[in-house]
Design a protein around this nucleic acid. Structure first.
Lengths: 237, 237
DNA sequence: ACTACTTCGTTAGGCATCGTAACTCTCGAG
DNA sequence: CTCGAGAGTTACGATGCCTAACGAAGTAGT
């Protein structure tokens, strides 16, 4: 958004990078993350092998970029829904979860890329945690309106410790809720979010990797049941 | 267990296969599934490259074997706990979940191997579904004692359809509970199991792939909270 | 407009990896 | 004791990642 025009060279560079990523995504869609081979991409973009290294310093660098994009993309999908949460927290939770799951189902390979199960040799980029938090941000906002009950309490306690120790988390919490790290609702908001994250990931992951295939599976049904249990436990209506 | 003695040649063969798998596991522990390179294994076992193809027809074949072993191993770990479920279904559920999670945490690479996020090119072996069911068997038994309430009902309805369509599932259900496919509790048992599976997988997966790192994470706390919610929804005590 | 510098791209090559082919050697079953 | 199956070997080919060394083209300063 910042620099629109730039030098023609830089423009061309950006364009080529985008084209490479686009092709990489297509290859990934048919053949998994391992199907992303620099040589093939190069051929398709009309370059010869090593030329790609002008645009990405390594294969992992390219994959990292795809990971970043994917995170941003889910975050956007979830955030879009999060904006109009007028119907009460319970329904908002369903909507958010639905958006997450829908994204995962629509883009299985990208979800697999994100979901931690690392491709070959590669270690997740360091800013992963931050981007993951961005995805879950709207959930924090929802759970900040809750009150933890029963079995969920121990989780809240742990989260209170967490938010006090990790300033990045405190910032995150504050950005989406306005709450301070030592607020009474801080732990609740985080606990709900992490629990929701875990459930989302479980359901999305099994669905995407095809483990539900065979059952007349509606992953959405599963997820809704889980999120409703969560809403119950956090007194969300 | 069947043939103990066999011909010396077959004995040697089995022994070598086992040694190869053992080394492969060690390599996987340090370097992920992609760290399993035939050449290196061969060198370590004292053979030269292509000799390994006498024992495994391809790299995927080897990995498939590791996957199978891993499934059997989790199933054993979970089943061991499932045996002595005297303390009531709720605690049994916790114990089962704990065993699953503990196994995953103790053997992260093997869990990652299983959990669907496929290594490079490779497709899961066909008997995967059956082995996965074996892991979850004890859960079916627990949830067969439950009564679905509230938000979980729609899942039950879907599962009833599933068990009627898929004979393998009906067999599975019957083997662990004695229930018939059209029994009133069939759907309940399956619904609870699948929900539990999803939660287990979500928590274990995030934990194993290190996404919880930083928070004073006790994955067990998370899991217990989730399983308790489930127990609540299914009226387990 | 001319020169100097940066960027882009090429070919050649190194290295690791999976996997096949063709050939030898050694067991062990009959 | 023989001879065939199984175990191993070396040689080779195909990909794939990546570096090195060089040439071509655009960019910028004067």
């Amino acid at each position: 958004m910042a620099a629109e025009i730039r030098s023609p060279r830089a423009r061309y560079r950006e364009q080529t990078r985008a084209e490479i990523k686009e092709i990489a995504l297509r290859h990934m869609a048919e053949g998994g993350a391992q199907g992303v081979a620099l040589t093939r991409i190069a051929k398709e973009v009309g370059l010869s092998g090593p030329a790609l290294y002008r645009y990405f310093s390594s294969r992992d660098d390219l994959l990292n970029d795809l990971v970043r994009d994917a995170y941003d993309d889910v975050a956007a999908a979830v955030g879009r829904v999060g904006a109009d949460a007028q119907a009460g927290p319970r329904l908002a939770l369903r909507a958010l979860g639905g958006a997450y799951l829908d994204w995962a189902v629509a883009q299985p390979h990208r979800y697999l890329l994100i979901q931690g199960s690392p491709v070959p040799g590669y270690a997740a980029p360091p800013d992963t945690a931050q981007r993951a938090r961005a995805v879950m941000g709207p959930f924090v906002k929802v759970f900040a309106q809750g009150e933890a009950t029963g079995a969920v309490r121990p989780v809240v306690a742990e989260m209170e410790g967490w938010v006090r120790k990790d300033p990045a988390v405190a910032d995150w919490l504050h950005a989406y809720t306005g709450l301070a790290a030592d607020d009474a609702h801080a732990g609740t908001a985080l606990a709900g979010t992490v629990l929701a994250w875990s459930q989302l990931h479980g359901t999305a992951s099994l669905e995407v990797s095809g483990q539900y295939s065979g059952m007349g599976h509606q992953a959405g049904t599963l997820l809704n049941a889980q999120l409703d249990m969560l809403a119950e436990a956090f007194g969300l209506r």
